[in-house]
Design a protein around this nucleic acid. Structure first.
Length: 874
RNA sequence: GCACGCGUGGCCAAACUGGCAAAGGCGCCGGUCUUAGAAACCGGAUAUUGAAGGUUCAAAUCCUUCCGCGUGUACCA
């Protein structure tokens, strides 16, 4: 141990030792319980950013903590290495996507290693290598065989900026998830995975993971899947006899229907085109055209529509209702048609009001005596049914259940459940992804590639233009093939898979990453999975985390796994953000680096104005850190200046993990200072706290030594609990407090009594071991001093310190005494003193009696070990 | 609009199953040391816990209303 703390030196030393000894490489073992610690895998952009550092520092803390708790910890990392940026780099700079990707992985692995993250590097997976994507294809074919992969013509979400199709999740809110530009629609034939086949399970199985997942993620997924139960009801069209099926959650209001409203794309329009006036056709086309436009998030779309002139019959009362086209009815939810009940639905009310349609009340609130004549707003609650023929007098709940059954019994409807969730569109017209392993044969139709022909390899050295067409469609050597079933000439599918396919099952591959026959061996995976703790960004709450749950259920049905849910506990970490300065006069944001602008702040530190170097007024915001915005902090630079341990400690200490972290460089020096403070203490005491000192016979402790021991054990309990509940900022504060108390002892190694040495050794050893999850390198170096060898914490089989209640307990506790809620004195009592004894002490206290003498004591509250409150009157 | 979350010293934050005089870090001020500074060590100041009501012996913590900020979501029938 050097006298001074040289972060770089000890970090290099221990990183080398860990690598050489394979300290974090694990195998299946019966001796210890397993723990699978997983962090979301990075996209190899070439640069680690602070968000990664935060994510991986947290994950590493959990991994180390669990190791010290005696678990066999699997802690792997891999590469989400398919996707757009590689292709963009190819278009812009003419580099080969594979080379670009491999280079980036090498660079980023180096960065991760310099952070000293405790990964089992042997288990890496690389999405872009054929050994991995072979099994994306394997799964695709399995799903095709199971009827879970199918092809259909659809309007896809299309991002003009990225020249890419997007899934519904990726186009949420009409905005491209990657670039933020508006999304448009385009007709394309696409492959889909039938996620809706598992919609019920995706909702119902949430109760199995609810306790370990953040409630907001559960809620968002539930909303996203959007199950709603109701009924289908068939209205027949008088003119043509065909049926318009509507979905409703409020069949109890059907007597109040004033129209059937269909989406502009509804087939009934096309089929009755010759019966419709030109005015209607024009309006229908208008609405269709409007829907193709990108959706503006802010704007509320005004209701629009037209009466088609067609009539539909309400099967419950035989009433003839007009059929309208409405812009607020969507073809891709429910049946694309609704019954309009303006008295009990806000949208229908708005629509009916605008077009002067009749409004009839059929549900009243239970207490309501008379029905008011004028209806000023929709009443959407449940209530008592009125004006509903034979159903009048029933409650909405009764009506809902009985009327759906009645419809079914009479052949014009049935109870039904619909979902907001759509099937997962996985086709991408891109090059850098897993080729979809399907072949189109003029004679046999759509045929999957044979399993033993996998992988369908991505050809190298092809022209990538970025025009939005599948690059593989221009490569005859790729798409020209023979049919697997008839051997005739055939054509391969030239689209590739969405990269969310790769990330849906990657963590299973870690358990068995060189398997050539199966994605992974089921028995091996059965030992390690499900994932015990998953940590990653909040932004994946509905995409990745629904896909991977879906995938798990498919794997279960294939027989690869036996459980329903792949992830037991989830922690979502907040973004790392920083101040940005930009000029958007041209419509596009042009960012200025922080060191090139002049910032004025008010006395609270809030920015009041920002000027560019040329004096131009700039706008400012707090946004996700990134290089392009100029607000990025380069982890490499930070590690270089302060060391990996300090960087990691600071990131964990700065804010609770699930909070957004606004990056301010100031503060990291406090982390360094703390490490140096502990280091100096260990250095000073290194000769007396080694194992050689005989301390066993120490049985009694001085007051100050006892106090230190209490603090030590209180700290052990605090940190243990914090780490168990995934809090990382508070245990760092606890470590600092313990270090402060060590200094407060004011003992010197040369003159310390044996009991002090014992107390110091206990405190220091505990402190060092508890620092390991946060700052592993410096902990290793200091632990070597305590244990007397250089083999490392794991090789020495060290464990997290154990809390001892007796040592944590004080001889005497201080009890606050209040009179009428105001603190008046304090008394000292044994921790074992009973309430009546404490009450008596409190009442006898001189300072208390000043406030109680001559007054009537109304009540005395004793909170054991904490306080006494005496309530007096007069 | 709706849903959820948050508001604690200059800044980041702890305590929130109600219970002492509200942790810790950054910053600030002072002392020791030093020719001086830095570092280190020691010490110090700074909070009517967003506002107003309410419940209680007792409220940062529970309830109501309001203000401010953030996130998600948007015609889902």
């Amino acid at each position: 141990m050097d006298e001074k703390y040289f972060a770089k030196k000890i970090e290099a030393k221990w990183q080398k030792k860990w690598a050489e000894s394979g300290a974090f490489e694990v195998e299946i073992s019966d001796e210890k319980p397993k723990f699978f610690q997983l962090e979301m895998l990075p996209y190899p952009s070439g640069n680690l950013h602070m968000g990664h550092v935060r994510n991986y520092a947290v994950g590493d803390a959990v991994a180390w903590y669990k190791r010290l708790k005696g678990f066999n910890v699997l802690h792997p990392i891999g590469w989400d290495s398919f996707g757009q940026p590689a292709e963009d780099a190819a278009v812009k700079r003419g580099v080969n996507p594979r080379d670009w990707t491999e280079d980036n992985i090498r660079a980023m692995r180096g960065q991760l290693e310099r952070l000293g993250l405790s990964y089992d590097w042997q288990r890496q997976m690389y999405a872009h290598r054929k050994e991995y994507y072979k099994f994306d294809q394997w799964f695709f074919i399995k799903m095709f065989e199971m009827g879970l992969a199918y092809k259909k013509m659809t309007q896809v979400n299309w991002c003009e900026n990225d020249k890419a199709t997007l899934s519904n999740e990726q186009a949420s809110g009409g905005i491209c998830w990657r670039c933020g530009e508006p999304v448009t629609k385009k007709d394309l034939e696409q492959w889909f995975f039938r996620t809706t086949a598992y919609a019920d399970q995706l909702i119902d199985d949430m109760e199995k993971i609810e306790s370990g997942w953040p409630s907001h993620v559960i809620k968002r997924q539930r909303d996203w899947i959007g199950r709603s139960t109701g009924a289908y009801v068939d209205f027949s069209v008088k003119e043509s006899g065909e049926v318009i099926r509507v979905f409703t959650t409020r069949i109890d209001t059907i007597y109040g229907a004033n129209a059937v409203v269909v989406a502009a794309e509804h087939p009934v329009i096309e089929q009755n085109a010759d019966r419709l006036s030109s005015e209607v056709i024009t309006k229908v086309n208008e609405i269709k055209a409007e829907k193709l436009k990108p959706t503006d998030h802010e704007e509320e779309i005004e209701k629009d529509g037209i009466d088609t002139g067609l009539k539909a019959v309400n099967p419950f009362n035989g009433e003839e209702l007009p059929v309208w086209v409405g812009n607020y009815v969507m073809m891709d939810y429910g049946t694309g048609a609704v019954m309009s009940v303006p008295a009990h639905d806000e949208r229908d009310f708005e629509f009916a009001t605008k077009f002067g349609m009749p409004i009839k009340r059929v549900v009243t609130s239970p207490g309501q005596e008379a029905i008011a004549d004028e209806i000023v707003a929709a009443f959407t609650d449940y209530g008592l049914m009125v004006n509903s023929g034979e159903w009048s007098g029933k409650t909405s709940e009764e009506g809902k259940a009985e009327m759906a059954d009645y419809a079914k019994a009479n052949g014009f409807g049935e109870p039904a459940t619909t979902f907001r969730l759509r099937d997962w569109g996985v086709s991408r017209q891109r090059y850098w992804g897993a080729p979809i392993p399907m072949i189109y044969c003029p004679d046999c139709g759509t045929v999957p590639v044979k399993y033993d022909e996998l992988p369908v390899e991505l050809p190298d050295n092809i022209a990538i233009t970025g025009t939005g067409e599948s690059p593989l469609a221009k490569v005859p050597e790729f798409y020209e093939t023979t049919c697997p079933s008839c051997d005739g000439p055939a054509r391969r599918e030239t689209d590739t898979m969405d990269t969310f396919v790769d990330s849906s099952w990657y963590f299973f591959r870690y358990t068995d990453n060189d398997n050539e026959v199966l994605p992974f061996d089921p028995d091996t995976a059965a030992y390690w999975t499900p994932v015990d703790q998953y940590i990653g960004g909040d932004d994946h709450a509905v995409m990745h985390l629904i896909y991977t749950r879906f995938w798990n259920k498919v794997m279960r049905d294939i027989g690869l796994v036996k459980f329903d849910e792949p992830i037991k506990r989830l922690l979502t970490q907040g973004m790392v953000v920083g101040e940005t300065f930009y000029d958007d006069a041209t419509g596009k944001k042009i960012y200025h680096a922080p060191d090139t602008v002049a910032v004025e702040r008010d006395e609270k530190g809030k920015i009041t104005s920002v000027k560019a170097a040329d004096g131009k007024e700039l706008k400012f915001a707090i946004e996700r850190m990134s290089k392009s915005k100029g607000n990025g902090v380069d982890p490499d630079e930070m590690v270089d200046v302060y060391g990996a341990d300090a960087a990691r400690l600071f990131v964990l200490f700065a804010a609770p993990v699930d909070n957004e972290l606004v990056w301010h460089e100031a503060g990291i020096e406090g982390a360094v200072r703390f490490l140096q403070r502990v280091w100096r203490f260990v250095y000073k005491w290194k000769d007396v706290i080694g194992l050689g000192t005989n301390t066993d016979e120490v049985t009694s402790f001085s007051a100050s030594a006892k106090k230190l021991r209490q603090k030590t054990h209180q700290t052990i309990r605090r940190i243990d609990q914090s780490l168990d509940t995934l809090q990382f900022n508070t245990p760092v504060a606890a470590l600092m407090e313990l270090a402060n108390d060590l200094y407060d002892l004011k003992a010197e190694p040369e003159t310390a009594s044996p009991d002090e040495v014992v107390a110091v050794r206990e405190a220091l050893t505990s402190l060092i071991l508890m620092m390991t999850p946060f700052t592993p390198h410096v902990a290793e170096e200091m632990f070597a001093v305590v244990i007397g060898n250089d083999n490392g914490i794991l090789a020495n089989d060290a464990r997290f310190p154990v809390y001892d209640e007796a040592s944590a307990k004080a001889d005497e506790i201080e009890i606050a005494v209040q009179v009428n809620g105001k603190l008046r004195s304090r008394v000292f009592a044994s921790p074992d003193a009973d309430n009546s004894e404490i009450e008596r002490m409190a009442k006898d206290d001189v300072k208390v009696r000043e406030h109680t003498d001559g007054k009537e004591v109304v009540k005395v509250i004793v909170v054991p070990g904490r306080l006494v409150n005496i309530v007096v009157k007069g």
